[in-house]
């Protein structure tokens, strides 16, 4: 069971981090601009972080050894990607992904 103080501390700590990430650029950029190289580096963050989060979920880590494949998530990813290409709707992508995994778990 998770202790309330641990969860609350995490909620507030992460709240401060998120608030600063969102508001500091507004505060700092009211009179300044970022160096072009930093802007360029940041422009790759959305695709690299999403890829990193996806790929880490396709494997199980064994430090010092090759990671093993998480077949449930790998197979459920296929219809999810196809749905993304067809519908371009976050809602449908999530629904199809969830249903795919539920079906996989029922038959595997």
């Amino acid at each position: 069971m998770l202790s309330t103080s641990y969860v609350l501390l995490t909620i507030v700590g992460c709240g401060i981090v998120t608030l600063l990430s969102r508001t500091l650029p507004f505060v700092l950029l009211k009179n300044h601009s970022l160096p072009p190289l930093v802007v360029e580096l940041l422009s790759f963050v959305p695709i690299t972080i999403m890829t990193a989060l996806w790929v880490t979920n396709l494997f199980t880590q064994h430090l010092g050894h090759l990671p093993s494949v998480n077949y449930e998530n790998l197979f459920a990813s296929v219809p999810t990607v196809i749905t993304a290409a067809i519908t371009k709707s976050l809602l449908w992508i999530v629904i199809v992904g969830v249903v795919s995994l539920a079906i996989l778990r029922a038959v595997m």
Partner: peptide, 28 residues
């Protein structure tokens, strides 16, 4: 709840956001 596959909602959203990002971003 694990039978509903809801834990995949997160991974599916990452896939979706990645896909939508690629098709929407015209700067790269």
């Amino acid at each position: 709840p694990e039978r509903l596959g809801l834990d995949f909602a997160l991974v599916a959203m990452f896939i979706g956001l990645l896909y939508l990002q690629v098709i929407a971003d015209r700067s790269l």
